[in-house]
Design a protein around this nucleic acid. Structure first.
Lengths: 226, 226
DNA sequence: CCGCAAATGAACAAGCTAGTACAAACGGGC
DNA sequence: GCCCGTTTGTACTAGCTTGTTCATTTGCGG
């Protein structure tokens, strides 16, 4: 007997109904952040409701304030986690074995795909920009994991220039911005653009064609046309 | 005597202090919408406060509900007006006298500039996308002024293809989307991107360089490289 | 000069929302 | 075994927010 049935952080003894608790602060925090991410991404900072987040959590509103102090505190934690996850994925891409054009194409195609399948992240960034970056500006965690973000791109570009395939003189941050801009738009402006131009930008088939187009644009931009 | 001093919709007789009213519903509506545009652009739909909008208006909260029925009604009116103004400006651009490359460059440079100096419009569109376009979808006014939006671009592109300067086969909506994406990003992601990559994207000098880069990217994309 | 649309202003109602107080107990590392 | 950090749960508060009500007045086209 004494079967332990996991229901999130708590487990019940089937026989006695007495609640057995498992202390796991990391998991509790992660659970809250996961739920809050969805809510903030869905409704923005002002539109999200702490009660709603609490209800969807395995724990209670008490714990939200226990760990994050305020709605804004929770929002910032969500934002930091979102950037951290982005960078982690980005840095896991290995492009060094591919020829410059193939590597750049892979990088762009990956970015398109990744952002499309993680709309929450982009929606959070949109929300933060509506707030003029005021919360991100207070974050210490963000300042650290910033510039290495374009290391992958840098290596590819430098190899391309060295081989003569890419034209030199392109500013890397500019290039990164152009790629980001083209990729982010698919998610960020999906609804208004779909409505006005009657394209379903949520379809995977559409995205694949769009991905090719974006790759083409980036590759033509860097291509050395002596 | 009897000097009329305009203070918005009302005018006072300096001598008697008696208030003389001027009935001008168009102007009242326009005033409310102008204030509401700033507020919604600044704080989003959920973050904006009707009381705040009313206070900044020349009229009262009563009139907001008199004309727009609800906060959402006002928001939709703001959104419609914002799109209408965008299209109006876009269609005022005359590119037909320029050679294809120059015309396209002018179109792109204009778009960069216009969006940069009208951030409210882009911020509203961001907000509407956070709401998954649900308000724009209910609008009848929007459905009408949509596709002609790319007529200017179409004419330029077709001339370029005819003269052999542009490569054929490019989808116009795709091209429009790419231009939009590159331009919108400057405004939409200005704060987070500036923070992470330590560039002040609010500076005019930066924008000019960025504008050149975007033009370059678009021109290289359409250029016929037989 | 009549009647309707436009406007005024302040106070109120009802519901919502972030955050707290209270009261109690458990888990696990040391 | 002790203690601190973790957890549970509810009820509450104080302030905010949308939208309404009431009581009135004015402008203006026909």
């Amino acid at each position: 007997m004494n079967k332990l049935v996991q229901t999130g952080n708590t487990a019940r003894r089937a026989t006695t109904e007495r609640v057995q608790r498992i202390n796991d602060p990391d998991r509790t925090r992660a659970d809250i952040i996961a739920v809050a991410t969805r809510e903030f991404a869905e409704k923005g900072l002002a539109g999200a409701r702490v009660d709603e987040i609490a209800a969807l959590t395995k724990t209670s509103k008490r714990m939200i304030y226990y760990y994050f102090e305020s709605k804004e505190g929770l929002y910032l934690a969500v934002l930091e986690e979102c950037y951290r996850a982005m960078r982690e994925i980005e840095s896991s891409l290995s492009l060094d074995e591919l020829a410059p054009f193939d590597a750049l194409r892979a990088l762009v195609a990956f970015t398109v795909d990744y952002q499309f399948s993680h709309p929450d992240f982009i929606r959070l960034v949109m929300t933060e920009n509506i707030h003029r970056g005021q919360y991100l500006a207070t974050s210490k965690a963000i300042q650290k994991l910033n510039v290495p973000a374009i290391d992958g791109l840098r290596r590819v570009y430098e190899r391309g220039v060295a081989s003569g395939e890419f034209r030199p003189g392109i500013d890397l941050i500019d290039l990164h911005m152009s790629i980001s801009a083209l990729c982010v738009f698919n998610v960020a402006n999906r609804y208004t653009f779909s409505l006005i131009f009657k394209r379903d930008m949520g379809q995977k088939r559409w995205l694949n064609r769009r991905s090719d187009e974006i790759c083409e644009m980036v590759l033509r931009f860097v291509k050395n046309d002596r």
